Each structure stands twice: as structure tokens, then as C-alpha cells.
Simulated scan of single mutants.
Amino acid sequence: MPLPQENKKYTYADYLTWPEEERWEIIDGVPYMQASPTWQHQALSRELLTQFSNYLKDKPCQVFAAPFDLRIPCGNEKDEHTTNVFQPDILVVCDKKGLKGTGYYGVPSLIIEISSPSTARRDRVLKFNRYENAGVKEYWIVEPEGNFVNVFILQDNKRYGRPEAYTEENKVKVSIFPDLIIDLAPVFGSI
């Protein structure tokens, strides 16, 4: 892919022409290249994915992990015109009709981002705002460097409330599944 042009908004149609071996996200039409995740990032992701996967077995919702092309439309955007293409670390989809190709077109029920110094701004500001505006019911930001998790829950389908903060000693009750509790000890114990 040539260097992104200033003042050009990129779409999912553009994204599909880029080299498959490169990892990209597009937020509000602006492309961001993704670095390969660290082993610690991968270990955290694996442990979270395992707990969600075990719970969701034989249930209607499904859990997915990156690489996974999440396209969240703004308004009535068609899939190929979407200017928001994310690679969340983990997401839960309960409405399967948006599953197609290499990901999902729509709004997942839960998203987890494992933050790093290079992605912190995007995770805490750009993605936070996009996920909130789209109506993602639950958004987790996992911080490997401090061994803590901030969980944001959508209030009245409008805005995220004050974050609930957890450390490696805690268990997180998942709001979208009242009987699911994620144990953070093995998650952070993996790094």
C-alpha cells in the first residue's frame, strides 16, 4: 500500500486492496498500521478467550479474536463504504447475521482491547468514542503493564458510565451475561 494520503478518507473497500500480511485499522477514515503483538499480549488474549469460549459453548453468542475485521457503520453506510474497520483483540457477537467474510459488519455486544503504549491513545479515546457511539454494551481495556482492567458498561444505550476497575486479584462479573464471571488471576498469571 502506498503511504496514506493526507485529507483522504479510507473505507473498507480500500482496506480490502491492501496486502493481507499487513495488519491495519481504519478509524474515521484514517488508517493505522498495527504492530505484531508481544507474547504477553498474546498470553492475556488467550486466557480471556479461553474463559469466554468455555462459557459460550453451546450458547447463541460467539467469541472471536484478532485478526478479525470488525466494521462498525456510521449511520446507513454500506459495508464497503464503512470508514471504521477495527481489529479488536476479543469481541462477542450475539447477532450472527452480520458475520461475513473475514469478520463482522455491525455492533458486537462486548469488545476487549489489550492496550500497549503504542495503542493506548486509540484504545482510550478513538475506539472508546466509536464503540460508545455505536452502542457496544460492554467495553474492556486491559492494561498489561499495571495488571488491571477497566470495564465500561453502556448506560441507557447512550454513554458509558464510570469505569469499574479490577486487578489480578479480582473476578469480573460480565454485565451482558449475568452468570459469567471472568477470573483475572489466571489471565494476569499467564504473563
Score class of each variant (00 low, 15 high):
Glu169Tyr: 11
Thr102Pro: 11
Leu126Glu: 14
Phe148Ala: 01
Pro2His: 08
Asn7His: 12
Leu184Cys: 04
Ile191Leu: 14
Ile26His: 03
Arg162Val: 11
Asp156Ala: 14
Gly146Cys: 07
Pro67Cys: 01
Ile72Gly: 01
Ala66Ser: 14
Ser118Leu: 07
Leu91Val: 00
Asp58Ile: 00
Gln62Cys: 01
Ala43Ile: 01
Ile191Glu: 09
His81Asn: 15
Val149Ile: 10
Tyr166Val: 02
Ile90Gly: 02
Ala43Thr: 04
Cys94Tyr: 08
Pro31Met: 08
Val142Gly: 01
Ala66Gly: 06
Asn170Pro: 10
Glu22Met: 06
Lys137Met: 13
Ile176Pro: 04
Asn133Pro: 00
Lys57Val: 02
Ala65Leu: 03
Cys74His: 11
Gln155Gly: 00
Arg130Asp: 10
Gly98Lys: 05
Glu6Arg: 09
Phe52Ile: 00
Ser109Ala: 14
Phe52Cys: 04
Leu70Trp: 05
Asn157Tyr: 07
Lys137Asp: 14
Asn54Ala: 13
Val174Ile: 14
Pro178Ala: 11
Leu44Val: 04
Gln42Asp: 08
Lys96Leu: 15
Pro67Met: 08
Asn76Glu: 15
Lys158Gln: 14
Leu48Thr: 00
Pro4His: 09
Val136Leu: 03
Asn7Phe: 12
Ile90Cys: 05
Glu20Ile: 01
Ala66Tyr: 02
Cys61Ser: 11
Tyr12Cys: 08
Cys61Tyr: 03
Gly161Lys: 08
Gly101Asp: 13
Lys78Phe: 07
Gln155Glu: 15
Val172Glu: 09
Lys171Phe: 01
Glu80Met: 13
Gln87Val: 03
Asn170Tyr: 09
Pro73Thr: 10
Arg71Tyr: 06
Thr17Ser: 12
Glu145Ile: 00
Arg124Leu: 09
Gly106Lys: 04
Phe177Glu: 14
Ile153Val: 15
Glu138Cys: 07
Ile181Glu: 15
Ala165Gly: 10
Gly75Val: 10
Ser175Gly: 05
Glu80Leu: 13
Leu44Cys: 02
Glu25Gly: 07
Asn76Ile: 04
Tyr10Ala: 03
Gly29Phe: 08
